[in-house]
């Protein structure tokens, strides 16, 4: 079991992913965005950062990095892919996940720990429904949006894995998302459940030195999922 962490020009959270894997005793290596061979990896992580300076739109240029054609093929074969923050933005631009991420309502860059409610499951996270996790966010474009039919489909299929919430797990009447996200959406997966993108940074709360351990399940769950597949 080996994680591959893609390093785009402008990525800046790739070391945190490797650090989280190291803490949990999991093998992980960097993949350069110009590489076209990702065989040998069991799970791919697209890290946070500001790939290509966020020019045009966040993730819009990274989506065409040479490695992305392989990442798309990996996803189509059912390979697990996690996109954190800028990685989530890249996955939506690559159409591996539905919707798009707009500028935060209020135009402020937001950097704080938030409460998140588990509303669904995927290959990367299988927690009891309504579990509340505390994970930091750190973004300027985390305001998730999609059209009405897509939202209906996401809800019907349980593809909204994480929602911003109040500390007790409830949703505020005027929304609990600090960034204005549609329906308080913080993370979504594809229909198959192998591709998962979220704005919060679970890798920062794996080692307790980061202020918590609520990010650990994301890494341990995919290890378990892959072990079950391997039988």
């Amino acid at each position: 079991m080996r994680f591959g962490v893609v390093r785009f020009p402008g990525s800046n959270c790739e070391q945190d992913i490797i650090g989280a894997c190291d803490y949990l005793g999991l093998k992980a290596d960097y993949i350069w965005h110009g590489d076209t061979d990702i065989s040998g990896y069991d799970a791919i992580v697209l890290p946070g950062g500001f790939s290509y300076g966020d020019y045009i739109r966040t993730g819009a240029v990274a989506r065409f990095s040479p490695v992305m054609a392989e990442v798309v093929r990996f996803a189509e074969k059912g390979g697990p892919i996690l996109g954190v923050c800028n990685g989530f933005q890249i996955l939506t631009e690559a159409h591996l996940l539905p919707g798009a991420l707009l500028r935060n309502r209020g135009l402020k860059f937001i950097c704080k720990t938030v409460d998140l409610r588990v509303d669904g499951a995927c290959d990367w996270l299988q927690q009891p429904q309504d579990t509340v996790l505390q994970i930091p966010i750190n973004h300027n474009e985390g305001n998730y949006t999609c059209d009405a039919q897509t939202l209906e489909r996401l809800n019907a299929n349980g593809q909204v894995v994480l929602r911003y919430c109040e500390p007790d797990g409830s949703s505020a009447d005027d929304g609990s998302a600090p960034n204005g996200s549609l329906d308080d959406i913080a993370g979504v997966c594809n229909e198959r459940g192998n591709v998962f993108g979220l704005m919060p940074h679970p890798e920062r709360v794996v080692d307790p030195v980061g202020g918590g351990t609520d990010g650990q399940p994301f890494f341990t769950t995919i290890v378990r999922t892959l072990a079950e597949v391997a039988g």
């Binding site: 707009l102 309502r105 209020g106 135009l107 204005g180």
Partner: peptide
């Protein structure tokens, strides 16, 4: 139409 435009709203 229907997509919220944060800079425009500001």
């Amino acid at each position: 139409n229907g997509i919220f435009d944060p800079p425009g709203a500001t």
